[in-house]
Every structure is written in structure tokens, then in C-alpha cells.
Amino acid sequence: MISDFNAVTALVGGLLIGAGAVVLMLTNGRILGVSGIVGGVVGEPGSEQTRWRLAFIAGMVTPGAVLGLMGKLSLAGAGVALPVLLVAGFLVGFGSRMGNGCTSGHGICGLSRLSKRSMAAVATFMAVCAITVFVTRHLLSLGV
């Protein structure tokens, strides 16, 4: 069974995500990798790169903050218990730094550069994610 989804907004949103990656490369010559950008701010606070990294993060959170304040953002959320959220968050932070990238850096930018490392990373995290979803949603019945 296939759920309701909106192909147009998914594609247009994807185009905008790509546009963000291209703007950052065209202007600053940098890869758009959120885990690298955020990890750089927390891991190397004195770096001369902190300014552009913070500017990027400010831009990234502005649309969500504005829509949230206007009450126009409706998200279903993950629907998992707080301890699971915290463990998941820790693993995402630790793993994305250890593996040098997440969905944006390896998934969008790395695959576009035809990087072998990114292809291996994406294949790994997609496979582990799918197995995790199967185990938690069907075998353990955690969350929705």
C-alpha cells in the first residue's frame, strides 16, 4: 500500500534543497553538510569558519521559526518516547561526525560529486535505517 503523498511539493522541496547546496558551493566553495557545519561550531568553537557556519544555521532555522510563530507549521512528529528520542539524537550526532556526513553532505552533495565514499556511506545508513524501522515498527511495535 502507498500512503498519501504530494509529488509536486516533494520535488519542488528537493529542488530548493539542491539550490541551497549549489549556492553554498558557488559562493563559498563549501559542501552543504549539516552535521559538518553544526559539528564544526560545537567541536571547534574558535575556528575562523564559525561565522559562516552560524550564518548558514541561522538561515536554515529562519523559515521554520517564522512559520512556527505564525502557527502555520503543522508537523506530525516522530511519536516515539523521550528516551528513544534522546538515544536516537545521540547516535545521529556521534555517527554523522564519525562517518563525516549525514543525509545532506553524503546524500545530496557527495552523491552529486559521484564520491565513492559518499556512495558507501549512503548505502550503509539507508540499509541500517530500513532495518531499524522494520525491527522497531514491526517486531517491537515502538512508536506509530
Binding site: 516522530a78 516515539v80 528513544v84 528520542l85 538515544v87 536516537a88 539524537g89 545521540f90 547516535l91 545521529v92 550526532g93 556521534f94 555517527g95 554523522s96 561526525r97 564519525m98 562517518g99 563525516n100 549525514c102 543525509t103 553524503h106 558507501a120 556511506a121 549512503v122 550503509t124 545508513f125 539507508m126 540499509a127 541500517v128 535505517c129 530500513a130 532495518i131 531499524t132 524501522v133 522497531t136
Partner: peptide, 12 residues
């Protein structure tokens, strides 16, 4: 690292 990230991504 990617496997640990995938595990966290799938959990939440």
C-alpha cells in the same frame, strides 16, 4: 559511523 547514524535516523 554511517551505520550508527542510520540506527539513530531509523529510531526517530
Amino acid at each position: 559511523g554511517s551505520a550508527i547514524f542510520g540506527l539513530g535516523w531509523g529510531l526517530a
